[in-house]
Design a protein around this nucleic acid. Structure first.
Lengths: 231, 231
DNA sequence: TATCACTTATGATATATATCATAATATATA
DNA sequence: TATATATTATGATATATATCATAAGTGATA
């Protein structure tokens, strides 16, 4: 694992107003002193299942996957986190060790904030605490919602879901490069790798999408949405 | 829906030390004034998808199911909540309206605490806020873990899971009365009603359990655990 | 460049699961 | 109590999905 630390200041961070708007200048200085910002190349581990929890992790840039290792050759991906997501989920507040592993699936920048600092802010700054609970609630709940959305659908609906997820919520474009392999898609939506490939081929034959290796273009989003809605 | 309000005092509540231990006597009085404790008979709705959120709901007694309505005849159960659980999940902090419905599956007592009072405690009482985040985190995360546990298993593993869940975590006994119908089990673990019944029959034939209507007794917990572990 | 491992691809087959059909039993309701 | 309705039960069949097998393409690396 290669770590390269980035030196930047919380008070100038574009996301400050979003996640840490209720901190005083003094608290921001504290935050800045107790955070490390680390660059991860695609494929590098951010943290591993079992590691001791010491930081609150915040994705500034890139894309990471949150997963559990099932067997030697298979993982189970719980979610894909985007910038502004708190990537450790809530277990960091109720466990001493990580119950998930996190790996960058694109070049990413993760902010590691000393968990004790966050806790002290919660303890002393009520406005921050309230805002903080709202933010973590929203992310945690959307993970639950996504799991249900996926598991109540069958294969074509799941693939449609993933395509729409990347197009709408990650890349904001109908044309994007798949950041994960077909095998990882399979691990994310609970199906076999072969069937992920097969359904993508079907979608191509049905002229719903263009595929060229990792590059995907959605060409009939209306019909794709219908497939998703029907399950 | 029949509501019967119960008059009891928070300061005498057996669960106070668990959920609200960091409140001052003054705050406890405030809590007491802004809470309603309601008795629900089995089958009665605690709240419905779409209802406006105004309370933080806490299960004192009984058992409730949290679910989304899929079609006229089918629901999707997200979780079964036990006493001490915050039954609204975290969406109550990030939404204005409930995204799940809640129904009692056993006679239950639910405490409704004005959400604004909880928020004001978070705002002004740091120790409470910290403890509170730990509690809601733990419940939210266990919902995610349960969903994964269920969906990575096949039918026999799922039924084993549910049986063990009720025996170990709900009733603390190998002998219990199933609080939900086979159809509801199916809705909870994403399988067809017929197959829930079928697998239960198989388990009976394999001498893993005794069944007599709703009454279940686990007679070979070791083998049941093995089936669960194998998936 | 040559070799190796991994990913994508597709067909054939096996397996898991859902659906349909029917009946017995239990539960609710008039 | 009688009747309707929902639940439990089981077999037969259809469908969805996984697994196995094979091959071509891709990327890493020595």
């Amino acid at each position: 694992m290669e770590l390269s630390q980035i030196i930047s200041n919380c008070k100038d961070c574009g996301y400050r107003s979003w996640a840490f708007k209720n901190l005083s200048p003094e608290e921001l200085k504290q935050l800045n002193n107790k955070k490390v910002e680390i660059f991860f190349r695609k494929g590098e581990h951010v943290c591993m299942e079992g590691d001791e929890i010491s930081s609150f992790m915040y994705l500034r840039n890139g894309l990471v996957k949150l997963y559990k290792t099932e067997t030697n050759t298979r993982e189970h991906i719980i979610s894909i986190a985007k910038p502004k997501d708190f990537i450790g989920l809530l277990s960091i507040f109720s466990n001493t060790n990580h119950i998930y592993s996190i790996t960058a699936i694109e070049d990413s920048v993760v902010c590691f904030v000393d968990l004790n600092v966050i806790k002290s802010f919660i303890n002393t700054n009520g406005a921050f605490a309230l805002d903080f609970i709202e933010k973590i609630s929203s992310i945690s709940d959307s993970v639950i919602k996504t799991r249900i959305d996926i598991n109540t659908r069958q294969l074509r609906g799941r693939i449609a879901y993933i395509l729409l997820l990347f197009a709408k919520h990650v890349y904001d474009s109908n044309k994007f490069s798949f950041p994960i392999s077909r095998k990882e898609v399979a691990e994310l939506i609970d199906m076999s790798t072969e069937n992920v490939i097969r359904v993508l081929s079907e979608f191509r034959k049905d002229k719903l999408i263009h595929i060229e290796g990792k590059n995907i273009e959605i060409i009939d989003i209306k019909r794709l949405e219908k497939i998703y809605e029907l399950g």
